[in-house]
Design a protein around this nucleic acid. Structure first.
Lengths: 336, 336
DNA sequence: TTGAAAGCGCTACCAT
DNA sequence: ATGGTAGCGCTTTCAA
């Protein structure tokens, strides 16, 4: 294992001082053009690379930000990460991605690791399990800016980017109501999750606005997942007075519900309409294609990074930005 | 912006030397218990964190590896990344994830960035565009180990982890042949891609083994994508002598083909059987659920990391590991 | 225009 | 058991 080439090595070989080499490589005005050329030539020959640790040690700004998501292998998160990466690189930042696997303990560890790494800032989406946010206080102790996205922690203390949970659920519900649905089942996740609370609120609001009766039996909030979607939908379909539409809070729930509908031999959208928070790609995989509320992931990522960058550059203003979902009507919701 | 707490700060406050503090925090045997306790207490109070850059500067091993994938927002890659992350963390490594967006230029840049970062090693899956691999030579110049996975570059010079492309395609084809299919269409991607070449080879091999006629019109290799899958399948279905089964090389191709089949009003699997390289989650979203060759992503990630770790620890043996795909038979392939 | 030297935070070696 | 010191690679100030 041989040591990488250093400034000193170049300086020795050229018989000049380290400072001169350093300046030459930086195109400093106070070094002769001849010298610059000589130095650069040798640097290229010897495949010199500046040591980022020496620089970071000196400047204490490694130009790295950390990203914490509940699960990388979920399209929603990976596409947000992808968007963040793109803007980050454009600003000269690298990212370190940490996955909490939806668990509180791992999330705590992620925060620790990123602090130890001396990242300049963190973008975080909290895990489903997390209800105590004190591990994020460690960040303010170290003066590391933090911006939440999607699922937010303490919104009074940190900037965040969220979607229009209430409004999007309200719009989706209204869309169903205005297209022939009368008994809309709400299939959500754990009740303590913010997105569940907020979207349920939007759903109920729409029902009230349209003077529709509210039936608690039409609301099923357990966990998020394909199996749970199947169960919830089966339950809602086998009631004495069954649902004639579903609003599903996630892709897995929606596809689980879809299977339940098929197993009952029901027709979409006439027997039962179906809409969910699904991305464009997957909504089109099935027949009929599913109407969906879709997250603008690249806009979310970009917005979150820009908020963080502002804080890194000294702003202490706490901002809350909303990136709305987009409703795309496909074949699954308009009763004919 | 105040400077983080350093060893020196602690030493000054305690009126002892930096060395003592350093030793105390490391639980060195040659420091008194009383001192250890004092130091640790203060360190906690002042929220001291060791500066990783100082350590890396000294040891020249930042315990970071780089991962280059064509696209983070693809389930296949994100689940491999997820697996790599898990084993890496277990070994005390962090990861930096870079996405080439399937382009040669960006991939080159990713390699540059990771080198500048002084990562201890790189795991890479090359982009679709890449046919010149010279940018990876920069790594050997810097003595940075490189292991390819899935899509491999120069397999003579680097270790790699691949799937059993030939065999899996062969098995899939045989599965179709043994379950009533006679004219199997092959829907692939760009011909210069290794996975396309190899899988096509497996497909042809199976046909030969089963003494089936080989019809060039049944092979469509353009690009990978939903639209392309739709077009290819439409084409294969509207021939005078149409296909009665499809083998699709990717999820998007398979779902594109599925749409084409539905648009023609054909029945799966009796009119046309369908199998593809699809992951478990999505294969179950549709009706009928799709038979699939599925990658063992977590095994791939783990294997790749372990190969890299060996090299980081000094091994220079070039190894090639195969992680086979798994065939799962669902409703789309057995003609009745 | 160039060089010498200090110092970023830490570890390790050599003293005592 | 503790302290002093050198040095990792680099930038920057001061001197020449």
């Amino acid at each position: 294992m041989k040591r990488p080439v250093s400034l000193k090595d170049l300086a020795q070989e050229l018989g000049v001082s380290v400072s001169t080499v350093s300046r030459a490589l930086k195109n400093s005005a106070e070094v002769s053009d001849a010298m610059k050329e000589k130095v650069k030539k040798l640097a290229k020959e010897r495949k010199y690379r500046p040591n980022p640790f020496a620089v970071s040690l000196l400047k204490n700004s490694p130009r790295i930000i950390g990203i914490i998501v509940p699960d990388i292998a979920t399209y929603y998160y990976s596409s947000i990460i992808s968007a963040i990466n793109q803007v980050a690189i454009g600003e000269g930042y690298s990212t370190i991605i940490a996955s909490s696997d939806e668990t509180y303990e791992v999330e705590k560890q992620c925060v620790e690791n990123l602090i130890n790494f001396r990242v300049e800032g963190i973008l975080a989406c909290v895990s489903q399990q997390t209800s105590d946010f004190s591990h994020f206080d460690l960040l303010s102790d170290q003066n590391i800016p933090l911006v939440f996205f999607d699922r937010v922690g303490l919104s009074e203390k940190n900037s965040c980017v969220i979607t229009d949970n209430v409004e999007s659920a309200q719009k989706a519900t209204i869309h169903l109501l205005e297209n022939g649905s009368k008994r809309i089942g709400f299939i959500g996740g754990a009740n303590h999750l913010n997105i569940v609370k907020l979207r349920k609120h939007g759903y109920l609001q729409a029902l009230r606005d349209y003077k529709m009766p509210i039936d608690k039996d039409l609301v099923v909030c357990k966990e998020i997942g394909y199996e749970l979607g199947y169960e919830a939908a089966s339950q809602l379909l086998s009631q004495p007075n069954p649902a004639d539409a579903f609003l599903c809070l996630s892709e897995s729930l929606a596809f689980g519900a879809l299977k339940a509908i098929r197993d009952k031999g029901l027709h979409i959208p006439n027997d039962i309409a179906l809409i969910g928070y699904i991305d464009e790609i997957h909504a089109n995989y099935v027949l009929p294609p599913l109407s969906a509320m879709t997250h603008q992931t690249s806009k979310m990522g970009e917005t979150a990074f820009n908020l963080l960058l502002k804080q890194i550059n000294g702003s202490s203003k706490i901002e809350k930005k909303v990136v709305p979902c987009v409703l795309t009507v496909r074949g699954s919701t308009v009763k004919g």
